[in-house]
Structures are given as structure tokens and as C-alpha cells.
Design a protein around this nucleic acid. Structure first.
Lengths: 319, 319
DNA sequence: GTGAAAGCGCTAACAT
DNA sequence: ATGTTAGCGCTTTCAC
């Protein structure tokens, strides 16, 4: 029977017809679970993200296309940003459901990842340090942040605040926000200036609430500022809302730059200048690295840093 | 061995220790695929969406929470809005990977869905007509659209355009946009007015591009308008961008209302008045309906219409 | 060209 | 209390 269903060559025409007839009659439905066990593959790859968010949506679309082209399915799972779930996703138990996993790391520390024993095809994504032995794709975070900051310095901003990422919080130090903050500092140094710690706005997370809260904080504190670097575009959207609320004109009074260049950035008012992380490249490398593991190769682990570029729109002044 | 691993009761302490030792030593990792075959379950539920988008993200979060509470995993798959993929997701072949599936229908017609023979636990979601025999959760679309339109009429708008959803396009007629457009018409009638067909902006899709294009079209055509109902919030974001581009003030010159009440609606400038679909209710019903199918009941199919309400923000004038 | 059977790795039932 | 085994449904090999 399976010969017929899988279109094997050496089956008589009549037999094939007969089998197909019976199959249709009985309402037979193949059981994928059994096939997976037998085949040792599930033809499914998982993209595990900290949360269902626009940034990951845009990457997931590209991954789905890449894997779909080879007849593999992509599924997206969320860890809810809980480290224990990230670890669970790393355990081979969970991995054995999939031919491979691309895990976007958010909450785990280097030490926690170190402890993971896993031989299954796995690629790590995300703006944190990971052990040498894993394949890893990350962005040029510090460079991007520096690019953003330098752009505002070049067009006259001298007091550039930074919003998002819970500075000083429990997850700070090694995370994405910290690296981008380092780029913000570096750009100041590059211009012979010093970044003012008073311009680091508090607030945990990277959503719009954080951005709006950051601006409210700046306003309350009475500190002088004429630029805001938001660690993500999502944060930037909140920053724009906060600035409107405070009556600050963008970009005349305050320039704003985000990071991620979400599709949305083209539609804020004014359009959001943003650091483009080259999502195509991120997805491409993640898919490529996973593919070679799935193919059974055990190559040297690769650590890809995807370059970024600045996309200029209306939240920065013309140079 | 399995007794030990699964914490069965009647195992001697010493035996347990010995087994665990060996297990650790050999680096044994359980094979979930085999377990799934044996158990006849995968403890995994799929949420199949037309695309990875904010609206579905916000529902997926809630579904993940609901199923996670019962020890089940949620995975999200995208059909890329291709009808053939939606059908594939409906086929029992694909269903057999999961304990159940929640499918958000976008591109399929009633007839196409009619043809589906499936006994697996399945719940349909989405703003289209579906066969009686399926469980289905949808929004009070026409009511919501009428609510939105009536709100703008009540505060002085007399020429309310509608943006998004490809009116007159191939998928028009039965889809979400058509139902919402019906609500827009109905609200006019309820006020003793007539909706002007010239105010139906062309353009396929529900993303921001469509909203901006819609406004550009209105401006080009020179038609008079003082309000825009966007069929989704995502479209509304584009509408706001378009209006800014055209130099129209919101809400003084043009009022705007969206549909979905995305988290983002609170952060546009000005804040977006929007129809809230009660996402909690949508997720709750979808999870509940799927659960009872998984539990093996074969109850009467249920067709839930989730009520909506209007959330007023800055894109509409005070009443 | 066709049919039968072994075995993927697991676990629940059963025999010891 | 412990060890053994049958069988989930598939596919591939092997015997006919």
C-alpha cells in the first residue's frame, strides 16, 4: 500500500487503482506521527522566540520561505521570555520533535547555556554572548547603535537620551540593550563628547510603553535632551507618542532613531529613521547554518555578525 | 526503565538510582516522536494563521497561555495566505501531527471548506462564512464597523471613506472587508444618510501600505471626505501616515477609526480610536471549543460571535 | 509485480 | 518489585 501512496515505480496500474479505491472508501488518513518515527525526521523546523512580536514575525516569514522551498515546515513557538522555557527548548527532549531548532535567546545567561548538552541541529539567534560551540547569528549591535547616535550628533543633537532595555535591571549587563548602549557611548567618544548617564532612561522591556515612560521620565526629571536613541523600533513608537504628549516637535526639537527598521517604521509620523538589521541576511544565515547541521555535517561552529545600515526618514533632520 | 523515567510508583529506590545512573552515563535522550506514536497524542496544538502578524500575535499569546496551563504546547504556522496551504492545514494528514488545530481562515471560500473531510479536533477562526458542521469563532464585524462609522457621524463627519480589503477584488464579497463595509453602509442608513460608493478606496490587503494608498487615492480623485474607517488598525496606521502627508489634521479635518484595537493603537499620534474585538474572548472560546473536541466529545458545532466595543482615543473628536 | 514482515523507540500490560 | 514483551502505523527490504 505504501508503495502506491508514495508513488513508487514498480506497481501495476491495476493494483494501484484497486488500492486507491479502497483507501478512498475507508477514509484512510496517513498517520504522520508513525511516519516520523519510521523516517527519523519530522520535516519540521522550529523557530523558538521569546514572544510573538513583529520583529520575529518578519524573520519568521523569511525562514518559512527558506525552509518551505525545501519541503520543510516552519513552526513558531514562544517561550514567553521565561528562561526555563528557553532551556526546555534547548533540551534534546523538545528538540527531538523537530529536525532542527532556531532559538532566539533572550533571557538566558552564558553560564546557563553552557550547561546545555545537545547534539540535535541547533542554531542560536540573538544579541547575547553564547558558548563557542554553538552556531550563532547576531547583529552588529554596537555598530548600529553608534551609527544611530552619530547620525543625530551630526545633525546637531548634543544631549541624546537612550530609551528601552531596563538599564540597571536584573537582565542588564550582557543583554541586547547593554550592547546597544555601549554603541551609544562609543559614538559620543568618537565625536569627542561624553554620554551623560542622566540620559539613560529607566524602564524594563522593549515595547512602546517603555518608550513613552522613558520620555515621561526625562520630562519629569527636567533634564535637557534633544535626541533619543530607542533600542528597538517598538520602543521608538512609544517615544514618539511620549514626545507628542510632551509637546516636543520631531525632528525640530528632538531627533529620534530606532533599531530594527520594522515595516512599521515607514508609517509613523514622521517616518522613523532606524537601523536596519538586514533581516534577509539574518534569516539566510540562520537557515543555512541549520541546514548544514541537519545534513549531518559537524563543521566548525560559525558565529555570524550581520552588518547593519541606517535608513533615514523624517525623525532625523536633513544633513 | 520507562517506569523510572515517568516516576511510576512501584519502583525500588535502589533500582531507580541505578537506572538513572545508567541513563545519565549513556546520555540517553527520550525520543518524542516514538512517544507520540505510542501515546496517540503529541500534546501540541497548532494555530494556523494566514501570516505572522500583530493581530495574530496577540491572540497566539493568549492561546499559548490557555494551552500551556494544561501542559500542552502551542505552535504557530503560517499559510502565507495561500488557499492551498489553508486546505493542506485542514487535511487530516497535517492534522495528525497535532492534538488539535485552530485555523484562521482568510483565503478559502465556503465551497472549498465544504469539501474538507476531517474528523480531527478543529476550530475555525475568522471573518468568513464556514459550513455549519465546524466550530467557528468570529467577531461581530458588521456591528463593529457600524459602531465606528456611527461614532464619526455623531461628531460631525458626513463624508466617511472606507479603506482596506480590496473592494471589488477577487477575494471580495464574502471576506472580512466586505462584511465590515456592510456595517459602514448600515450605519449611514441608521442615520438617514447614504454611503457614497465614491468613498470606497481601492487597494488589496490590510497592511499600512493599503491605508496610505487609499488616502492618496482620495486626494488624487479630489473627492470630498472628512472621515476614514480603516478595516484594520494596521490599515489605519497607513491612513494616518497618508493624512499627514496630505496635510490633513486628525481629528479636526478628518476623523479616523480602526478595527482590532492593537496594542499599537494606544501609541499612534494621535491615539487611534478603534473597535476592540475582545481578543480575550476570541482566544477563550477558541481554546474551549478545541478542548472539548480533544476530549473526545462530539457535541453540536458551536458558532460563536464575539461582541465588540469601541475604544475612543484621539483620532475622533470629543462628543 | 506483489505481498509479507521487520523494526523505528516508546510504554502499558503482563509474567516472573 | 522487577524484567519482558506486544504493538502503536509506517516504510523498506526481502521472499515469492
Amino acid at each position: 500500500m505504501s508503495n502506491v501512496l508514495n508513488d513508487r515505480p514498480r506497481v501495476g496500474k491495476e493494483t494501484r487503482a484497486r488500492v486507491l479505491d479502497v483507501v478512498a472508501h475507508l477514509g484512510y488518513e496517513i498517520n504522520l506521527t508513525a511516519r516520523h518515527l519510521r523516517a527519523g525526521r519530522t520535516d519540521t523546523v522550529a523557530f523558538v522566540v521569546p514572544g510573538f512580536q513583529t520583529y520575529f514575525d518578519e524573520i519568521a516569514d523569511r525562514l518559512a520561505a527558506a525552509f518551505g522551498a525545501q519541503g520543510r515546515h516552519l513552526v513558531v513557538e514562544s517561550t514567553g521570555a521565561r528562561p526555563e522555557n528557553e532551556l526546555a527548548a534547548l533540551s534534546s527532549v523538545r528538540l527531538s520533535m523537530y529536525d532542527g531548532v532556531i532559538l532566539s535567546v533572550a533571557g538566558l545567561t552564558l553560564t546557563e547555556i553552557e550547561g546545555v548538552r545537545t547534539t540535535a541541529p541547533l542554531v542560536l539567534l540573538g544579541e547575547v554572548e553564547v558558548p563557542e560551540r554553538f552556531d550563532h547569528v547576531m547583529l552588529a549591535n554596537a555598530e548600529g547603535a553608534a551609527l544611530a547616535t552619530a547620525r543625530m550628533l551630526a545633525t546637531g543633537s548634543r544631549r541624546i537620551a537612550i530609551a528601552g532595555g531596563d538599564p540597571g535591571g536584573p537582565h542588564d549587563g550582557a543583554g541586547m540593550a547593554a550592547i546597544r548602549r555601549a554603541g551609544w557611548v562609543r559614538a559620543h567618544e568618537g565625536a569627542g563628547l561624553t554620554a551623560d548617564p542622566a540620559l539613560v532612561a529607566p524602564g524594563a522591556g522593549v515595547g512602546p510603553e517603555v518608550g513613552r515612560e522613558a520620555v515621561r521620565h526625562l520630562e519629569r526629571s527636567g533634564v535637557d535632551y534633544d535626541g533619543v536613541f530607542a533600542v528597538t523600533d517598538s520602543t521608538a513608537v512609544g517615544v514618539l507618542a511620549g514626545l507628542a504628549e510632551a509637546g516636543r516637535r520631531v525632528p525640530q526639537d528632538v531627533q529620534v532613531v530606532g533599531f530594527d527598521n520594522l515595516d512599521l517604521a515607514e508609517f509613523t509620523v514622521p517616518g522613523l529613521t532606524s537601523v536596519d538589521p538586514g533581516r534577509d541576511a539574518v534569516a539566510h544565515h540562520a537557515a543555512r547554518l541549520l541546514q548544514r547541521r541537519i545534513d549531518g555535517a559537524t563543521p566548525e561552529p560559525e558565529h555570524v555578525v550581520v552588518p547593519v545600515r541606517l535608513v533615514e526618514r523624517g525623525t532625523t533632520r536633513a544633513s
